[in-house]
């Protein structure tokens, strides 16, 4: 790029030499940048203290554009790498960006166990109901009846509600919104950053190129309209039958209930059983001794 005297207010957080980013026109991944930076600006977190981790997928390319330390790891393992990073230096704010495939197919076990341990990570799961990067295969969240290259007659499976899975596994903060609700998404990321524990923010996002093309929602606008038509609140969902809930996007804060955090619990055990302080441990991790 692409010098410009009047840049977008969040350009300062991006590696401008890499712009424009590789996302297709109208891809929901681009909106995630805005909600993330909006959240960081509203929160007490210092941008300089953030490290980002991702796996593999279109959504997992997000950290590579952000001007902070980042790890682009292997498919499904972002949360595992992030766990190591956070344990090596628990003072940094670690944000994971992952896709529906990355987080809930190949990486499903890492997700549920990180939630169970309540390790202090903020996970943004960009759910486009499909494998975008590899050309449109079905994912664990693809709605029943939706089409993909691996479901030419429509999926017959019951999809995961990722937010519900994370809550059931023990996450202390979980929220879910669509990119058509950028203010709510920003607030949820802000709350996730503030929560000392495992936070998951599921963001329903459009992949017009594969999901849209396969499912007669070819334009970004058509996909956004489809989200809006099918979005309901947790409160509305309470009185609905399973049949009525099929295909609905249930949005809101699923849980916000802080509890003992993984590394703090380990530090407490260390303090009881050894003379090594958490500070020493951090130094050892960095100095390699």
């Amino acid at each position: 790029m692409i010098e410009n005297e009047h840049p977008h207010k969040f350009i300062k957080y991006l590696r401008t030499e890499r712009l424009p980013h590789l996302f297709c026109p109208g891809c929901g991944n681009g909106i995630i940048f805005n909600t993330l930076f909006n959240a960081i600006e509203m929160s007490d977190v210092d941008f300089e203290n953030i490290s980002m981790v991702s796996g593999i997928g279109c959504s997992s390319r997000i950290p590579g554009y952000v001007k902070c330390d980042s790890l682009h790891t292997t498919h499904g393992r972002a949360i595992a790498f992030a766990t190591g990073l956070k344990m090596a230096n628990s003072k940094q704010d670690v944000i994971v960006v992952t896709g529906d495939g990355d987080a809930t197919s190949i990486g499903g076990n890492h997700l549920i166990h990180a939630a169970r341990r309540n390790i202090d990570l903020t996970v943004i799961c960009v759910n486009n109901d499909i494998y975008g990067m590899t050309g449109g295969q079905i994912s664990p969240t693809s709605p029943k009846g939706s089409y993909a290259t691996t479901a030419p007659y429509g999926s017959t499976d019951k999809p995961f509600n990722i937010a519900e899975v994370a809550k059931a596994a023990g996450a202390s903060y979980v929220a879910k919104y669509t990119v058509a609700q950028p203010i709510q998404v920003s607030n949820a990321i802000k709350e996730g950053l503030a929560n000392k524990g495992f936070s998951l923010i599921e963001v329903i996002a459009q992949c017009p190129t594969y999901y849209g093309r396969k499912n007669k929602l070819k334009t970004p606008k058509a996909m956004i309209d489809w989200f809006k038509e099918n979005t309901i609140s947790l409160k509305q969902a309470e009185d609905m039958t399973d049949e009525e809930l099929e295909g609905k996007i249930i949005t809101g804060v699923y849980i916000n209930k802080p509890r003992a955090e993984f590394i703090e619990s380990l530090d407490a055990i260390s303090a009881q059983n050894s003379d090594i302080t958490p500070e020493d441990n951090i130094n050892k991790a960095y100095m390699g001794d």
Binding site: P7, H8, K9, L14, P20, H21, P25, G30, I183
Partner: peptide, 15 residues
């Protein structure tokens, strides 16, 4: 500022 929040390519500045 809604358009700046929704632009996936950070192409808009509203001053």
């Amino acid at each position: 500022q809604l358009c700046t929040l929704m632009c996936p390519d950070q192409a808009i500045l509203i001053e």
